[in-house]
Measured scan of single mutants.
Amino acid sequence: VKKMAKAIMADPNKADEVYKKWADKGYTLTQMSNFLKSKTAGKYDRVYNGYVIHLD
């Protein structure tokens, strides 16, 4: 998940494709939050927020 999150950060155009894969795998927002937690607070906030919007 972190590898794909980094791919989104490097190229935001990949976001919809990645979010669809995550949704197809049934990842919940709680799971995504836990996967994307980082020592650098807020590092993956943009990715998480994008997934929230995708699921909505």
Rank of each mutant, 00 (worst) to 15 (best):
V1G: 03
V1E: 03
V1R: 03
V1A: 05
V1T: 03
V1P: 06
V1C: 08
V1L: 08
V1I: 14
V1M: 05
K2E: 06
K2N: 02
K2L: 11
K2I: 12
K2V: 09
K2Q: 08
K2W: 02
K2A: 05
K2H: 05
K2C: 14
K2F: 00
K3V: 10
K3R: 13
K3Q: 11
K3D: 12
K3T: 11
K3I: 08
K3M: 12
K3N: 09
K3L: 11
K3H: 09
M4Q: 14
M4F: 05
M4K: 05
M4P: 03
M4E: 15
M4A: 11
M4T: 05
M4H: 07
A5D: 03
A5F: 03
A5S: 03
A5G: 03
A5Q: 03
K6E: 14
K6F: 06
A7Q: 12
A7P: 01
A7R: 10
A7D: 10
A7M: 15
A7F: 07
I8K: 02
I8R: 00
I8N: 01
I8P: 03
I8G: 02
M9C: 09
M9F: 07
M9P: 01
M9E: 04
A10R: 15
A10S: 11
A10L: 13
A10P: 02
A10E: 12
A10M: 13
A10Q: 12
A10C: 12
D11Q: 07
D11Y: 08
D11T: 05
D11G: 01
D11E: 08
D11I: 05
D11W: 06
P12W: 15
P12N: 06
P12R: 07
P12Q: 08
P12F: 10
P12G: 07
P12Y: 10
P12H: 07
P12D: 06
N13V: 09
N13E: 12
N13Y: 11
N13P: 05
N13Q: 11
N13K: 12
N13R: 13
N13G: 12
K14F: 09
K14I: 15
K14P: 02
K14R: 11
K14Y: 10
K14W: 07
K14D: 03
K14G: 06
K14V: 13
A15E: 04
A15G: 05
A15M: 06
A15L: 06
A15H: 05
D16K: 11
D16Q: 14
D16I: 11
D16F: 14
D16C: 14
D16V: 10
D16L: 12
D16Y: 13
D16R: 10
E17C: 12
E17H: 07
E17T: 08
E17A: 12
E17L: 08
E17V: 08
E17M: 10
V18W: 04
V18A: 06
V18I: 15
V18P: 00
Y19F: 09
Y19K: 01
Y19T: 01
Y19S: 02
Y19D: 00
Y19C: 04
K20I: 08
K20N: 08
K20D: 05
K20L: 07
K20P: 04
K20T: 10
K21V: 13
K21Y: 15
K21N: 13
K21R: 12
K21G: 11
K21I: 15
K21D: 13
W22L: 01
W22G: 00
W22F: 03
W22K: 00
W22C: 04
W22P: 01
A23R: 09
A23E: 08
A23Q: 10
A23K: 09
A23Y: 10
A23H: 10
A23C: 13
A23T: 08
D24T: 10
D24S: 11
D24P: 00
D24R: 08
D24A: 13
D24F: 07
D24Q: 11
D24I: 08
K25I: 13
K25Q: 14
K25T: 11
K25P: 03
K25V: 11
K25L: 15
K25H: 11
K25D: 11
G26C: 10
G26P: 03
G26N: 06
G26F: 06
G26I: 05
G26S: 05
G26Q: 05
Y27S: 01
Y27T: 00
Y27E: 01
T28H: 02
L29I: 10
L29W: 04
L29D: 04
L29C: 05
L29Q: 08
T30P: 08
T30R: 10
T30E: 15
T30D: 14
T30Y: 11
T30C: 13
Q31D: 14
Q31W: 06
Q31K: 05
Q31T: 05
M32K: 00
M32P: 00
M32N: 02
M32T: 02
M32W: 01
M32E: 03
M32D: 03
S33W: 14
S33P: 02
S33F: 14
S33Q: 14
S33K: 15
S33M: 12
S33Y: 13
S33R: 15
S33T: 10
S33A: 15
S33H: 13
N34L: 12
N34S: 12
N34M: 12
N34W: 11
F35D: 04
F35M: 14
F35P: 02
F35Q: 04
F35A: 09
F35H: 06
L36G: 02
L36H: 02
L36A: 00
L36V: 00
K37T: 10
K37E: 12
K37F: 09
K37L: 08
K37P: 03
S38G: 07
S38P: 02
S38T: 09
S38Y: 07
S38L: 05
K39C: 11
K39D: 14
K39F: 09
K39R: 10
K39N: 13
T40W: 09
T40C: 10
T40G: 08
T40Q: 11
T40E: 12
T40D: 11
A41Q: 12
A41H: 11
A41R: 11
A41T: 12
A41Y: 09
A41K: 14
A41F: 09
A41V: 11
G42T: 05
G42K: 05
G42N: 09
K43E: 14
K43S: 06
K43F: 11
K43T: 07
K43V: 08
K43C: 10
K43H: 06
Y44P: 00
Y44V: 01
Y44W: 08
Y44S: 02
Y44F: 10
Y44T: 00
D45V: 07
D45Y: 07
D45K: 06
D45E: 09
D45G: 04
D45N: 07
R46I: 15
R46W: 15
R46Y: 14
R46K: 15
R46T: 15
R46E: 15
R46C: 14
R46A: 15
R46S: 15
R46L: 14
V47P: 01
V47A: 05
V47E: 01
V47S: 02
V47D: 03
V47L: 03
Y48W: 06
Y48P: 00
Y48G: 01
Y48M: 10
Y48S: 00
Y48Q: 02
N49H: 12
N49R: 10
N49L: 14
N49D: 14
N49T: 10
G50C: 08
G50Y: 04
G50H: 04
G50Q: 05
G50E: 06
G50N: 04
G50P: 00
G50L: 05
Y51K: 00
Y51P: 03
Y51S: 02
Y51V: 02
Y51C: 03
Y51A: 02
Y51E: 01
V52T: 05
V52A: 13
V52Q: 12
I53F: 09
I53E: 14
I53N: 14
I53V: 13
I53L: 14
I53S: 12
I53Y: 09
H54L: 05
H54P: 01
H54Y: 15
H54N: 01
H54W: 15
H54R: 01
H54K: 01
L55Q: 02
L55E: 01
L55R: 00
L55M: 08
L55S: 01
D56Q: 15
D56L: 15
D56K: 15
D56P: 01
D56R: 15
